Amino acid sequence: MVALTSAGDAQARRRPPSMAEVAALAGVSAQTVSRVANGRTNVEQATRERVLAAMGTLGYRPNRAARALRSGRSRSIGVLVYTLTSYGSTRTVNGIALEAAKAGYSVTLIPLASPEPADVSAAFETLAEQSVDGAAILLEVQRMTAAEIVLPTDLPVVVVDSGPPTRYPAIDNDQARGARLATEHLLGLGHRNVWHIAGPQASHSAEVRRTTWEKTLRDAGAPVPEVQRGDWSPEAGYAIGSRLAEDPAVTAVFAANDQMALGVLRALHDAGRDVPGDVSVVGFDDMPESASFQPPLTTIHQHFDRIGVECVSALLEEIENGERQDHALVPVELVVRASTAPPA
């Protein structure tokens, strides 16, 4: 015998659970459910977990469109990024996405064809169509000024890995401290000639590391070798490392990132020069693979996850409270491994 159901019964089953039903199951008010659904922080953790459990049991999903109409916010953050091929950019974007999700915000990613002002301005026009509440910009350029790039005046913006702009908070790892620690470490081991493989000249972080390396050597009264210019890749590190390996006077190399340092290690190995017996090598970034290089790489540890947290925190502070934060530098640390030693 086949059971028959009315259209009304079918419609009732299809009706999504309401906020009132979630509140009843969790034993709280509908206002508390609303606070949890909107990512508010003024809810006790135990209560929040009870509400989230009730949402999961009933299959409740907040209506983002209705919520946006009520609040005037989309609860979305835009991220403009020039390149996702670098380790730092990839990890920073990941950190932003994770932290935004914790706060109940989605992320709209807009890749840039170039870091030129016209392309950045065009990307912001695209973001305007997405109705984001704020935006983070990852350009890896030396400087971004309000005069060069046309941005919406009412949109909260933070800038990552760029020279301090005139109007927006800039958040970055402490590049200068990292370069100084790397150079001082090699000098402290007794190396007098510390060579540097820099990143692209247009890169803000590369130029800070290069100028700080040079200043640290001059302050120590050490000679300043000719800077070697790479492009962040292991291939560039290998090509430059092969040239440096031909000079027996080269005993220490500071590469501006771990990928170029990896190329240097391979070039020295292929040339029959021992690391660290003949040449000490230091990188920058502390990629997870760096501890597995042969030998394990001495490097500068950057907190890209912390950059993501700081970005989202600065944006939400302005989005929700109207308060603009100052520029912020995240501390870095020297991680000493087996690729550095006193000169033979």
Results as ranks from 00 to 15, higher is better:
residue 65 A to I: 13
residue 236 A to P: 01
residue 111 P to L: 10
residue 201 Q to W: 15
residue 56 G to I: 05
residue 136 A to P: 14
residue 246 E to R: 15
residue 157 V to Y: 07
residue 197 I to S: 00
residue 154 D to W: 12
residue 182 A to R: 06
residue 251 T to W: 10
residue 265 L to I: 07
residue 63 N to R: 00
residue 182 A to M: 08
residue 54 A to H: 10
residue 239 A to L: 14
residue 155 L to I: 11
residue 130 Q to S: 10
residue 266 R to Y: 09
residue 73 R to A: 09
residue 283 G to H: 00
residue 341 A to D: 00
residue 8 G to I: 10
residue 84 L to N: 03
residue 110 I to C: 15
residue 317 E to T: 15
residue 141 V to F: 05
residue 185 H to S: 06
residue 35 R to V: 01
residue 119 D to N: 09
residue 174 D to T: 02
residue 106 S to Q: 07
residue 290 S to Q: 04
residue 332 V to G: 10
residue 219 D to I: 04
residue 328 A to K: 07
residue 180 R to H: 08
residue 320 E to A: 07
residue 230 G to T: 03
residue 39 G to M: 12
residue 22 V to L: 02
residue 294 Q to W: 07
residue 108 T to P: 02
residue 156 P to M: 06
residue 196 H to D: 02
residue 80 L to F: 05
residue 124 F to Q: 11
residue 320 E to C: 04
residue 97 A to E: 15
residue 138 L to S: 08
residue 106 S to F: 01
residue 319 I to M: 09
residue 3 A to F: 08
residue 120 V to D: 02
residue 137 I to L: 15
residue 177 R to K: 11
residue 338 A to E: 15
residue 154 D to Y: 12
residue 332 V to W: 03
residue 329 L to H: 08
residue 262 L to E: 02
residue 310 E to M: 12
residue 242 S to Q: 12
residue 198 A to V: 08
residue 191 H to T: 04
residue 246 E to K: 14
residue 59 G to R: 07
residue 171 I to G: 13
residue 330 V to S: 05
residue 72 G to S: 00
residue 309 V to W: 07
residue 26 A to M: 04
residue 331 P to Y: 02
residue 208 V to L: 12
residue 151 L to E: 05
residue 230 G to P: 02
residue 236 A to W: 00
residue 54 A to G: 12
residue 319 I to N: 05
residue 160 V to Q: 08
residue 299 T to E: 09
residue 98 L to R: 13
residue 203 S to R: 13
residue 281 V to D: 00
residue 249 A to N: 14
residue 5 T to P: 00
residue 225 P to M: 14
residue 97 A to R: 15
residue 245 A to K: 00
residue 255 A to D: 00
residue 167 R to L: 14
residue 137 I to D: 09
residue 114 S to Q: 01
residue 258 D to I: 00
residue 174 D to A: 06
residue 95 G to C: 08
residue 306 R to F: 03
